[in-house]
Write a protein that binds this DNA or RNA. Structure first.
Lengths: 333, 333
DNA sequence: TGGATCTGAGAGAGCGCTCTCCGAGAGAGA
DNA sequence: TCTCTCTCGGAGAGCGCTCTCTCAGATCCA
């Protein structure tokens, strides 16, 4: 269809002025009932839908928000359900507020620039940035240009951008504490990538809890993927064949680790206890089922969206919101 | 920042007219080099970014496309990697074409209407619809209104909307053929939901191949999830305790089924061979590793995007594109 | 009954951009 | 030197909408 009807045409059809149609469309209360009905009918008959571009040109709003996922190679599309969970949480909240969600995948080199231009072109009313690597300059840049920004995961570096995060340190401490409480003495960890805050904080939690009880830390670093968990586990077994527990910073790494432990003839949990982090579906289905730290991943997305929506209407929001994590005890530890 | 610079201001700053700045921004060749450079500098100095709303108001294009995922409860956010794969494929292609991807989650009741309005408001230049349930009216409606639409997965019903799909029938036939070739005689299937084309076609493939070799079909229906696979497997064991092979229409269902088989003391593959469909990461990591039908899920997304981009510039595209599937033989069959 | 008050609809000015003319000036041919 | 063509920048008209003004007519009180 070429000629979609305009306000003008609806007005002509209903025998009123453009302004009146606009009032009806935007639900202004100062329109007399009979006229409102007539306009409504004209809109229906012509199948009129307001042109968003024209509208946002004058209102300076677009009613849509971007969600930036700055990596997509390693994690976004593995089966750890992290990003899908965030997308779902954000999506729910946006839908409830009748806003649109624009997903932006920042994988390639040029994409930072692309995203910046996109936001500055007033394509969206605000930006959510999830799970950054290192001290990403993007949130700071956007915030400085006056674009409402909320981060998922505490941003590294000294940018002051509001963020929502889960309690990674606390979750890791709970996991290690559980291992200590159940009599484990040589507790290793498979840490996440050390350029991501989730990786850093979970390792910190592990270290803090061990230090508090005077144990030695045994560390290998992975990148949250199953394969990296397997590699790290092999290394740990070499470093300390006597280890009797492993805290993995992701369920996927725990899964990879358990496979390696099995290959090396170690029984889980009798010989080696394993605790993961995330509580993805797989945790229930792995053999043995996985004790893990549950993080409210949908909740993270929802909270990010809620904060951003408030920020976009110039409300004051807290610098940070930290959501609690919870240890789920199953068979592996 | 409140006052973002406009074309007008850049023009004033560079000492030229609005039209000239517009020419430079849009790369028109009829601008003399020195003027181009001067304008470029002014743009840089002022940090000018063209306002998208104003631009699309006149060009009638937005350079963004919507990807509609019409379900999000069961599949979108389980760990079957299907939707992430599509998102990634579409995203890559869109990024290469310098277009934006708008993700729309159609879960709630009102969302069909919302999506329709969104597309008709010319918010996007075209719409991709992935994995519909039943005979969804959405693609037909949009297409009728002149919105370029491409479906992922053959649409049910008699709408004539171009689509891209994988060869579900062929894949299922390959799987069953492999089971027959390896001497299995009582081959059951755990079918997918029968209101989705992937569920229907995979069951059809199974039936066709069995019929061609005069075997009886043994069917239970799941919904592609792990839990439903487990339930279906229990039912199949009750229906026919002698079965020696199972073709599951998704890897997740195969995973659930294998767990149940183990619980019932059946060894995979010695007692019962299992073949899945999808080839998700988990297939390599399950115990035993899963023989499955690989579908080019990224390729599906990419192809959908490619077709839509062509359609949006009024090129003629084929009614359908079907991508090949391939049997990957591992330990479970 | 006259004027003050209120209600509700129309007129019109943009929002920031693109794009079609148009015309000024330069270069070229006679 | 004069005109004809050609190049390149400017003027200006919208794109479809919102929103402030403004004013006509209804309502009300003295």
């Amino acid at each position: 269809m070429v000629g979609r009807p305009t306000l003008e045409q609806v007005a002509a059809h209903a025998g009123v002025s453009r302004a009146t149609v606009s009032r009806v469309v935007n639900g202004s209360p100062t329109v007399a009932e009979p006229i409102r009905v007539a306009v409504q009918r004209a809109i229906e008959e012509l199948g009129y839908v307001p042109n968003q571009a024209a509208r946002s040109l004058v209102t300076q709003r677009t009613d849509s928000f971007a969600l930036v996922l700055p990596e997509w190679t390693a994690r976004v599309f593995s089966d750890d359900q992290l990003f899908p969970g965030i997308i779902r949480g954000v999506g729910q909240e946006m839908e409830a507020a009748d806003k649109q969600l624009v997903l932006m995948l920042a994988g390639s080199a040029a994409s930072h620039d692309r995203i910046e231009r996109y936001a500055l072109a007033r394509h969206v009313d605000g930006v959510l940035i999830a799970s950054m690597h290192g001290a990403d300059p993007l949130p700071g840049t956007l915030a400085r240009m006056g674009v409402p920004v909320v981060c998922g995961g505490r941003p590294l570096g000294r940018v002051r951008v509001p963020y929502v995060d889960v309690d990674n340190v606390g979750g890791a401490r709970q996991a290690v504490r559980h291992l200590l409480d159940t009599g484990r003495t040589r507790i290793a960890t498979i840490a996440g990538p050390q350029d991501m805050v989730a990786g850093i904080d979970r390792l910190n939690g592990y270290r803090e809890e061990l230090r508090d009880s005077d144990r030695r830390s045994i560390v290998a670093v992975g990148d949250f993927t199953r394969d990296s968990g397997a590699v790290a586990m092999r290394q740990l077994l070499q470093d300390d064949p006597q280890l009797d527990a492993v805290f993995a910073a992701s369920d996927l790494m725990a899964h990879g680790a358990m496979k390696v432990l099995k290959e090396h003839g170690r029984h889980v949990p009798d010989d080696v206890a394993v605790v993961g982090f995330d509580d993805i579906d797989l945790a229930k289905y792995s053999e043995p089922s996985l004790t893990t730290v549950r993080q409210p991943i949908d909740g993270l997305g929802r909270e990010m969206a809620r904060q951003l929506l408030r920020l976009a209407i110039s409300e004051t929001i807290p610098d940070s919101v930290v959501l609690p994590t919870e240890l789920v005890i199953r068979a592996s530890a």
